[in-house]
């Protein structure tokens, strides 16, 4: 009997289609329908990718923190929470990398430099490095329970960096602009295009995390079945 089925279900397939439609919608609004900015011209369109990817990274790391808390809490302890935490962190690192790359390109054409050690940029880079470290800690070996316990503790510490990154533009004098959406910096079709980006990227995040955590579950099952098989073989060896 095949225990290792596909990672997709009817729901995730529908979600995948919705994600593709959302990304297509974003391309149409972001590249064609949204107007140029009066100062930045067409460069402002990077906002529709840069800001949603940064926000989704925050969300992903927040979900990693919550799932890690749920794993450590005795009443809700389940390996499923550990896998959700790991999958969400992996997707979060991808989104954070996208935010850093698009931000760097945007910085070059607007600020005149790819990088500067500004408070927002520095805290974001530190957050990115921290979660790469988190993923490395998950791969250090040991049993699934050991992996889950040590990475959950680290995730609860790492998630404290997220508010530090977000409020860095308020607490220091940064080169990076202050909050745009909260302060009404976007209007009309530009605001609408931004929300299209947020919806499309959120769908993409949920789709990626669902598949990734199922893939992690299959990997864990392969590990466990390998152990079961080895035990069975050993028993057969000593059977009369």
């Amino acid at each position: 009997m095949n225990h290792f089925g596909p990672t997709s279900t009817r729901f995730t397939r529908a979600l995948g289609v919705a994600t593709i439609l959302g990304l297509g919608w974003l391309a149409v609004f972001g590249l064609l329908l949204s107007p140029d900015d009066v100062v930045q011209g067409s460069y402002a369109r990077l906002l529709y990718i840069h800001v949603p990817s940064a926000w989704l990274a925050y969300l992903a790391f927040g979900v990693t923190g919550l799932a890690s808390g749920a794993y450590l809490w005795p009443r809700t302890r389940s390996m499923q929470w550990d896998r959700i935490a790991g999958a969400s962190a992996e997707v979060g690192v991808l989104f954070m990398a996208l935010a850093l790359v698009t931000g760097s390109l945007w910085g070059k054409v607007t600020w005149g430099t790819y990088w500067t050690w500004d408070s927002r940029l520095t805290t974001t880079a530190f957050l990115f490095v921290t979660y790469i470290g988190y993923l490395a800690v998950r791969d250090l070996g040991g049993s699934h329970e050991q992996r889950a316990r040590r990475s959950a503790v680290l995730a609860l510490l790492a998630v404290l960096e997220v508010p530090l990154v977000h409020f860095s533009v308020s607490w220091w004098r940064p080169l990076h602009q202050a909050e745009t959406i909260e302060r009404g910096g976007l209007k009309g079709l530009m605001l609408f295009s931004f929300f299209v980006g947020m919806i499309a990227f959120t769908l993409l995040y949920v789709w990626l995390v669902m598949h990734r955590q199922r893939l992690m579950m299959l990997n864990d099952m392969i590990d466990d079945s390998g152990l079961d098989r080895a035990l069975a073989e050993r028993r057969n060896e000593v059977a009369p």
Binding site: D37, Q40, A44, L175, T180, R183
Partner: peptide, 20 residues
């Protein structure tokens, strides 16, 4: 070195906005 510091306000580029 000079670095441009743009603010957090975005406005659509159109005739009305160009006047502003």
């Amino acid at each position: 070195e000079v670095i441009v510091k743009h603010d957090n306000q975005y406005d659509a580029e159109n005739e009305e906005r160009l006047d502003e």
